[in-house]
Design a protein around this nucleic acid. Structure first.
Lengths: 386, 386
DNA sequence: TCCATAAGTTCATTGGCAATACAAATACCT
DNA sequence: AGGTATTTGTATTGCCAATGAACTTATGGA
């Protein structure tokens, strides 16, 4: 997810790869089935080129043709192209404090399978947890081979392109090593290394990412209006995912969005991290559950100030509250008020605030979606893998 | 500077443009003159292709050949390529609270001319200020026509490619409109519109940017090690520029890096912006000059907490203190201490903190450098403009 | 039934890079 | 001193993906 200004020259196939991605993007974003001619018109390519790219996407199983609509105008009717509903899918896995989850998302962005197993994971060794997670992955994967829905035809096999694992902690963007997951009490766990041999077969190695980053991705897919926003996940810890220009912003090492230890009450309560007054100490679940009558007030205002800092620093126009915050309209209001006060540009460009509608497994969905996004962004890489 | 995922298909000339930029980048980054063969080896292009691109860069006047070094090894000696020291230059202008400045940077990144005029600009109307600024620009431009240095040969004319203007305020990234410059008391000033007819001729329209963003760029050019960092400029207001992956990060609207109104003392002193406890109220110049004995302590710790928030949110590894902060080793120490405490990753990946060495016109230098960066990033666009 | 219209396909042309062969300029060896 | 190895840089040919124009296909309407 990190741009790596490659020192590799462009060749003819780069331009084809780039145009194939452009064509695919237009098919994905089109509200109605897109014809080859419309594709050509939208991009400025000739119909010949657009047709060739469309054929390539069809051959790769990334799009499918649909019957032409009842012709209303003169001329030969167009055959529409839509994202393929079968073929490659992403498998998302989630380790969280109180549950494990697995989820399958297809190329259209639809969630095709979803399983959650509740259970406290705190203090368990990484090994057994990952074994349980791998078992869950196999349960879902086996289910893909045997189509359940009657309308699913025989050629509609779903094949896992890649597995992505969401973890509530700091994840290195290069290797997939989990450096620290304080609420699981994990430290320096090589999830990819441990998990790879136990997972269902897939043509690409699994990846690991931060739970909030993935949840933000799920939110992005659920709302076409979103472009630059902050997703804040309130659990035992507080994490955030930044999406900029419809792409996750994870920082060069993968640790961006660490909002939980932004100082919101200087000299305040001691935090597990060693500092005082961190956002987690006032807006983490432990603080939210405290009997103190102004706990909510304090949480909402602290949360609002921390989010305002993020919005000021990133220039964002939308904030989505997720995790436990999704159930708290009171916090939403307090955050909205704090942003109006503390965001410099708020007076002429108000910041939209809303609660997530995705539920507890947003991270698993987003992890699966991240795989699909990778295919969407570089379809040429998936042409030969049939 | 904002990525705008273009809906334009790639063509053959796109790949040439991309490879030309790659070749130019390697010439620019090479510690010693780069030969065509070394260019081919570094990129994987054939020597024929590398040679053709090199010839194109030469013809465009973007690089120049230097005599081969005394041959130490067998084989035909290589003719080196270095960035051209004449030809296109960037002209940077700066409006600040207490001075106006102009500055010329050439394609090698060297500052070729620099003029500063001290004088309080607060409360002056934008019109007269911009007229003074344009006059300054002409003074520098006329100076380019008449080469001063005796070693400057006759063919070494410097020609302005574009003018960039640094302003201490919020600037829209699209139009170049200054929305708010509180310390100049400007609101909604269309600097480009007002300035364009009065400026020296240049093939591209002028651009406007935030002072701290440009200063960050100057800092980037001055230190090859920098890649992802925060530049914080302490003046009457406090601004910041974020550089990510060696590119300025300005947000989708151009307002990223607004650190001055991050809350560092909840319920603290009232700020001009209407909120309380903003960073500016404890670490702006007015607060720094206050007779209060713990003003420094308070400023350093507040500044440290705000910077820690930025570092946590962006995943940065370096912080550069500029503006008035550049003269304050005491603040540097306080910031370093605050980062060690409040940055989550600090314990295993310490954040480097240092003061700027560039002096008061960093923004003008950076503005000029931004023009040069644009040429560096897209040399193909400057091939025909001879 | 014929024509206008639009979608999709075929084919020659163009631009840029790869591969290969060739020319140029130097160090090293005998 | 002259030949050989070695490296740089250039010329030629072929390939790939896009363009542009002509052609085929499929439909609605006169």
């Amino acid at each position: 997810m990190t741009s790596a200004s490659a020192r590799v020259p462009a060749r003819q196939q780069s331009i084809r790869a780039s145009n194939l991605a452009l064509a695919y993007r237009l098919v994905l974003d089109a509200p109605t089935p897109l014809s080859r001619a419309a594709l050509a018109a939208a991009t400025g390519m000739t119909r010949a080129t657009a047709g060739a790219l469309a054929d390539a996407l069809l051959a790769a199983g990334l799009v499918q043709e649909v019957a032409p609509p009842p012709a209303s105008t003169a001329g030969r009717p167009a055959t529409g192209l839509v994202p393929a509903s079968a073929g490659w899918v992403g498998l998302g896995l989630e380790v969280n404090v109180d549950h494990l989850a697995a989820c399958v998302v297809d190329l259209t962005g639809a969630v095709r399978r979803q399983v959650t197993v509740d259970g406290d994971q705190r203090g368990r060794e990484p090994g057994p947890v990952l074994a349980d997670l791998a078992a869950l992955a196999h349960r879902v994967a086996d289910d893909l081979a045997a189509p359940d829905a009657p309308e699913t035809g025989p050629g509609d096999a779903l094949r896992i392109a890649q597995v992505a694992v969401a973890v509530p902690g700091l994840v290195r963007s290069d290797g997939g090593r989990v450096l620290r997951a304080p609420n699981l009490d994990w430290q320096d766990v090589d999830v990819v290394e441990e998990l790879t041999p136990r997972l269902p077969e897939a043509p690409a190695r699994p990846t690991v990412g931060n739970e909030a980053d993935y949840a933000a991705l799920a939110e992005l897919d659920a709302d076409r209006e979103l472009r630059d926003f902050l997703y804040v996940s309130g659990e035992i810890g507080v994490g955030a995912g930044v999406v900029f220009d419809r792409r996750p912003f994870t920082g060069s090492r993968g640790w961006a969005g660490e909002i939980g230890h932004v100082t919101v009450e200087p000299g305040g309560d001691a935090c597990r991290c060693g500092a005082r007054g961190c956002l987690e100490t006032v807006a983490g679940l432990d603080a939210l559950r405290s009997p103190d009558p102004d706990a909510s007030e304090r949480a909402g205002s602290g949360l609002g100030r921390a989010i305002a800092a993020a919005v000021n620093l990133y220039d964002l126009d939308t904030v989505v509250l997720g995790g436990a915050y999704a159930q708290r309209p009171d916090l939403e209001e307090l955050v909205r008020a704090a942003l109006a006060e503390h965001v410099v540009s708020a007076s002429w460009a108000p910041v939209a605030v809303r609660r997530s509608r995705l539920g507890g497994t947003a991270a698993a969905i987003g992890a699966a979606a991240s795989v699909v996004h990778r295919i969407h962004a570089d379809p040429a890489a998936w042409e030969a893998r049939d």
